[in-house]
C-alpha cells in the first residue's frame, strides 16, 4: 500500500502529533488526550505483555539459574554456587574456542556480505534489464530455511554427494569455517543488499549529477558521494547482521555440529542446556552471550554514533 503514496517529510512523521487535528477547545483537547492515552495503552498492552513474558522473565530466570549448580541429571545436588559457573566457563579453553569461532564467523561473513551486498545493490539499483527476475531470485536465499541452506552447502562439498571433487572441507577447522561462512554469506547477503538498496535510493541523484559535472569518475562518485551519503543505511545493515551472525546456531549445528573447534557460543549453550540438561552452567553461557550482544550493540550505537531511533524512523 505504501507503494501508492508519497510519504510525508521526515519531521512531520513524528508519531501521534499529526492526529491532534481536532477543532475543539482546550477542555475538549485534554479529555480527548486522556482517552487517547488510555486507548493507546490498551492497544499496546497485549504485545508488551507477550514479549515481556517470554523474554524478560526467562532472562531473569536464566540469571538466577546461572548462580546455581543446577543439573537435571543430579537434581539432589543442586545448590547455590555464586559465580562458580562463570569462573568455570571463563577459565575453560572450550569457551574461548567458541568465542574465537563465533567472532571469526561474524567478522568475516559480515565483511563479505557488506562488499557483496553493496555490489548487488548497485546492480539492482542501476540494471533495468531483468529487474523483476533479479528481485525475485534474490529473495529466494532470504526465504529459504537456514537449516536447508546449511544442508545444501554441506551436501555440495561432501566427499560422496558433492560436486566439488574429493576431500572433505567440513573435516577441518579452517574448512569448516569457510563452508559455514559461505553458507551464511549466501543466505543473508540478499537481505543486506535490500537494506543497502533502500539506502542507495535515498541518496539524492542531483549530488551524482553535480559530481559528474565536476568531472568525478564513477569510482570517485561511488566512494566520495554515494557511500558517505548512505552511511546510516550501511551502519544499520551492519549492526543487524552482526548481531544476527553472532547468534549463529542452525548452520553450525547442521554442518559440523561444532566439531573441529568450529563450535559457536550458541551451540555451546545449546549443548549444555538441552543435550546435557545442565541448566546452571548453560544459563551462565546464555547470560554471557547476552552480554556480548549488548556489547556489540553498544559499540555500534556509541562508537559509530548510529542513532537507531533516527534510522528506524522514530525522529
Amino acid at each position: 500500500m505504501a507503494t501508492t503514496q508519497t510519504p510525508p517529510a521526515t519531521g512531520s512523521v513524528k508519531a501521534g502529533g499529526k492526529h491532534s487535528g481536532g477543532s475543539g477547545g482546550g477542555r475538549f483537547q485534554t479529555d480527548r488526550a486522556k482517552a487517547e492515552r488510555k486507548l493507546g495503552l490498551k492497544l499496546a498492552a497485549p504485545a508488551a505483555i507477550v514479549m515481556l513474558a517470554v523474554t524478560a522473565y526467562p532472562i531473569g530466570y536464566a540469571l538466577y539459574l546461572s548462580l546455581f549448580r543446577y543439573d537435571l541429571r543430579t537434581p539432589d545436588q543442586n545448590a547455590f554456587v555464586g559465580f562458580d559457573n562463570y569462573a568455570l566457563i571463563l577459565t575453560s579453553s572450550v569457551w574461548w574456542q567458541a568465542v574465537l569461532s563465533t567472532t571469526v564467523i561474524t567478522v568475516v561473513s559480515v565483511a563479505l556480505e557488506l562488499v557483496l551486498g553493496l555490489a548487488l545493490a548497485l546492480v539492482m539499483h542501476r540494471a533495468l534489464s531483468l529487474r523483476r527476475s533479479v528481485r525475485v531470485a534474490i529473495l529466494v536465499p532470504y526465504g529459504i530455511i537456514t537449516v536447508i541452506s546449511a544442508y545444501a552447502f554441506a551436501f555440495a562439498v561432501a566427499p560422496d554427494t558433492g560436486f566439488i571433487g574429493d576431500g572433505d572441507p567440513l573435516g577441518s577447522r579452517l574448512g569448516g569455517w569457510a563452508v559455514i561462512i559461505l553458507t551464511e554469506v549466501w543466505k543473508t547477503t540478499p537481505f543486506m543488499s535490500l537494506l543497502l538498496l533502500a539506502g542507495l535510493a535515498s541518496v539524492d541523484e542531483s549530488l551524482q549529477e553535480a559530481a559528474k559535472v565536476d568531472g568525478a569518475t564513477a569510482t570517485q562518485r561511488l566512494f566520495r558521494v554515494t557511500l558517505p551519503n548512505m552511511k546510516g543505511a550501511i551502519l544499520v545493515a551492519l549492526l543487524f547482521r552482526a548481531l544476527d551472525a553472532f547468534r549463529i546456531f542452525d548452520t553450525v549445528y547442521v554442518q559440523t555440529a561444532g566439531a573441529f573447534e568450529t563450535q559457536t557460543i550458541s551451540g555451546l549453550g545449546y549443548n549444555a542446556l538441552i543435550t546435557r540438561v545442565n541448566l546452571g552452567l548453560g544459563s551462565a553461557i546464555s547470560i554471557l552471550l547476552f552480554l556480548f550482544i549488548i556489547l556489540i550493540a553498544f559499540i555500534f550505537v556509541k562508537g559509530f554514533k548510529t542513532n537507531l531511533g533516527t534510522v528506524k524512523g522514530e525522529g
Binding site: 501521534g16 495503552l41 514479549m51 536464566a62 548481531l243 547468534r247 549453550g269 544459563s283
Partner: peptide
C-alpha cells in the same frame, strides 16, 4: 496514531527483543 506514555519504550523494547539471542532463554523455557 495515538499519543500514549511508553510509546518509544515499546518500540525500543521490541527492537531489543528482535536482537535478543534465543539461546539465552531456551534453558529457562
Amino acid at each position: 496514531r495515538l499519543d500514549f506514555p511508553g510509546k518509544s519504550l515499546l518500540l525500543t523494547g521490541a527492537l531489543a527483543i528482535a536482537m535478543f539471542p534465543p539461546v539465552s532463554i531456551i534453558g529457562p523455557l
